[in-house]
Design a protein around this nucleic acid. Structure first.
Lengths: 208, 208
DNA sequence: CTGCTGACTAAGCGCTTGCTCAGCATGCTG
DNA sequence: CAGCATGCTGAGCAAGCGCTTAGTCAGCAG
């Protein structure tokens, strides 16, 4: 069993209430298969079998294999954006907000690494229209981080030469966690989050 | 045309002298196809056509589609390890060596991003024996970075709470560059390298 | 010229893929 | 009870896959 794939993640999402239990099982099976083998190496038989059904059942709940990927990617990005906005909107100055953002962003990419892998590394397999939706969400995430760094620089809490580069580095660190984090990793997602929060604040020139 | 895929990279590698020109063209075509679409979404017809041959010609120079991937991955990892060792072996104290390492590591992942994508994101498609070879090289890379951070901490040049986590963050930042860097990126690979070098030194608590 | 070699192609084999469809069990409605 | 919708399966189709095979042809030694 992988740890906390989407059971805690999906139901709370706006517009992502996966109604029949069978559809949810298919979604879960697809996330795990796509994360492990990649979209193209996963067959519809893999997904259906993992969900305890025949291949034909998949097409009652989703239009195609690609539609499953699109739904996973959309909901995963929406969840990430919500997490980022929640952290930024909380109390405190830019440094405190940034620490919270990195802690949660990092912990999420460790805990929900299966979803994270699909979300970040299977973009190229998305149909064009689904990609457009997801690209807009990614831009929003980047803008939130950039705005926070800008605010910190303006307040004199951060010293950064280039806001865009710094923002890239911050999101990059978090995203890449979903690539390398495993069950065998010595740190819990929360520990890793705290340590990354510390590293990022120093990177941004905040007095820690 | 993508920028500097392997023309400048391959011939200098130990044990990777791709002799017949046709075999080299196939390798180049495979790198670009795997980077763009992924291993499983790339067909042998794609590769052969891009190299200006019929599908059957591929099997004269390589045993299988997977053998092509294995060769790309092996040589790419060997090149990265050589780059890391070169930077660490150079003159100066830990901070100076680390700056050089990050500058070159980052610039390489931007410049040779097609190779970088295959090397870092297609590991799961490798046959078991090829994976073992590559895993050993990756461990060597991680050890070089960890040792350098340890040396810096011992010399009082770095302040790090956890060496392993810091090493992960350093390599992670560089690797992820190959995911997001494009021809449209506003910074050159070298500019990006210098900026990342600065960020990493601050992250490690060095006085900059 | 002959005989041979190594790089290559046209054709296609056996298999797997994403997806479809006729049919069946179940449970709700009148 | 009939009538019908829902959720699902077994069987299988057309297309495309990695890879093989038989054969062509340029180049070169004798």
């Amino acid at each position: 069993m992988t740890s906390t794939p989407l059971a805690d993640l999906w139901p709370t999402l706006p517009g992502a209430d996966v109604r029949p239990e069978a559809a949810y099982r298919l979604l879960q099976a697809a996330v795990e298969s796509f994360a492990e083998r990649g979209f193209h190496a996963t067959t519809t038989r893999d997904i259906a079998t993992a969900a305890g059904m025949s291949p034909a059942a998949l097409y009652i709940h989703y239009q195609s294999k690609a539609a499953l990927l699109a739904e996973i990617s959309r909901a995963g990005h929406a969840a990430t954006l919500a997490l980022v906005r929640g952290a930024v909107a909380g109390p405190g100055g830019p440094a405190e907000r940034m620490r919270r953002l990195v802690e949660q962003f990092t912990a999420w990419h460790a805990r929900a690494r299966t979803v994270g892998r699909v979300v970040n590394y299977e973009l190229h397999a998305l149909p064009e229209d689904a990609y457009a939706v997801v690209a807009a969400l990614r831009l929003d995430i980047e803008r939130e981080v950039s705005a926070l760094i800008e605010a910190g620089a303006a307040a004199g809490e951060f010293q950064v030469a280039e806001v865009r580069t710094a923002a890239r580095a911050v999101t990059s660190l978090g995203i890449d966690v979903s690539r390398w984090y495993t069950d065998n990793s010595s740190e819990t997602p929360e520990e890793l989050g705290r340590r990354y929060g510390e590293l990022v604040l120093r990177m941004l020139g905040a007095r820690v």
